[in-house]
Design a protein around this nucleic acid. Structure first.
Lengths: 221, 221
DNA sequence: TAGATTGTTAATCGATTAACAATC
DNA sequence: TAGATTGTTAATCGATTAACAATC
């Protein structure tokens, strides 16, 4: 099966690169709103501050359906709203986190998620000295209760921050109980049936880009 | 300034997508070597297991300079070596980590980095109850010693896991002391002069892809 | 030998960028 | 009005995929 770099199914398919840039604009505009608020903004200004091209910003914004006014630009609040709605960040999606290690704790404590419509309801772990604790206001529950909780709450997103060695097993448990999307931070590829979404965060891929760039930079002279 | 999706400066410029896939092959081949070792492997087999196309695997491998034998395939050890050398993972690069919170701890404890030639030498933090502790064998030092340590050791990579509020300030301190590449996990864009490499891990971008895919999936029926 | 698989050149596809008309 | 900026159509560029020759 071929991979899909294009997100299909929508009226207009959205290129993944666009989808990855929209949050960057969103973060930028929110920060701008706090630090030096203004009613309107042009693509040229956004592009300049974010170090890319105005035409790309304009094209990207087109996907969200946001409309600007010639000579004036886009109303900042409208732009923010358009991105929010487009990404589905205007209403909250609930998720469970599985694996309450350091990374799990970091994600539980990340305040940004609520801006992106993601609410981690609870965490699950198998270790007795973690179960029962409360971290950043979120309960750590025994992992054997996970399937039951997923069924009862109908939660669709699982955030997997367990060690590689038990990632597949935990993924299977989640999927069996009705999870539809797994955000996988475990450093291992997990196999899932068709129709299930896996978003794999691979540190090694990022590191490869970083180390190659650095090697080229240092080799320049 | 336009952005560069292509890594320039090498004899043959390497597309970033290729660079991101190479570690996936690497992880796959290493796991294969442990679980069901074999001397040779074909691109078709790799592609099947990783869910992509044989021609893409072959093209990607071409960049590493690895050579296969028609009808036989590639020698697994050679493939691993070729990727290692190509990414510069065959000799160790040292790095400092700045910000010893939960995420910092998670990265300090991540065993995988040594396979990728990255060695985090020490961590820095400003909080008194962290300074002096040792985590996964790595000392936590006072952040005010950071510039001096960078100068003395000549370390070129800084891993930034501090809160957004002090990310820019810490980045400036690192760059002033000679850091050439920053792996930025802080949820904020940092500004750097030309010639400095910043690799920004943006959770919001990944979440956007995940949430849009899930929304489309759930809307299908 | 026949067939599988690599290596390499060509074709396609999609994303980015450019050009320009519309409009405030 | 003139000029800046959007909206939209066209051109370019690069990455992916296909085709096929080379070879073990």
């Amino acid at each position: 099966m071929a991979k899909q770099s294009m997100i299909k199914g929508a009226s207009k398919p959205i290129p993944e690169p666009v989808l990855r840039r929209l949050p960057v604009y969103y973060q930028y505009l929110r920060k701008l709103n706090l630090e030096s608020p203004r009613e309107y903004i042009s693509c040229a200004k956004i592009a300049e501050d974010l170090n890319n091209l105005a035409i790309q910003v304009r094209k990207d914004m087109e996907f969200t359906g946001a409309q600007g006014r010639p000579k004036v630009g886009y109303r900042v609040t409208e732009l923010l709203k358009a991105i929010e709605i487009f990404l589905g960040w205007d209403n909250t999606t609930e998720a469970y986190l599985v694996g309450a290690g350091n990374l799990g704790f970091a994600l539980l404590g990340y305040q940004g998620f609520k801006d992106y419509g993601l609410n981690i309801i609870a965490a699950f772990d198998s270790s007795a000295d973690k179960i029962g604790r409360e971290v950043y206001g979120k309960k750590i529950l025994p992992v054997k209760k996970l399937p039951d909780m997923i069924r009862r709450t109908g939660i669709k997103i699982g955030i997997l921050t367990a060690p590689a060695s038990c990632a597949q097993e935990l993924a299977d448990a989640m999927l069996g109980a009705g999870i539809k999307a797994i955000w996988n931070f475990a450093p291992v590829k997990i196999s899932v049936p068709a129709g299930i979404i896996v978003q794999h965060e691979n540190l090694a891929s990022s590191l490869a880009v970083l180390s190659k760039r650095l090697a080229l930079l240092l080799a320049e002279r």
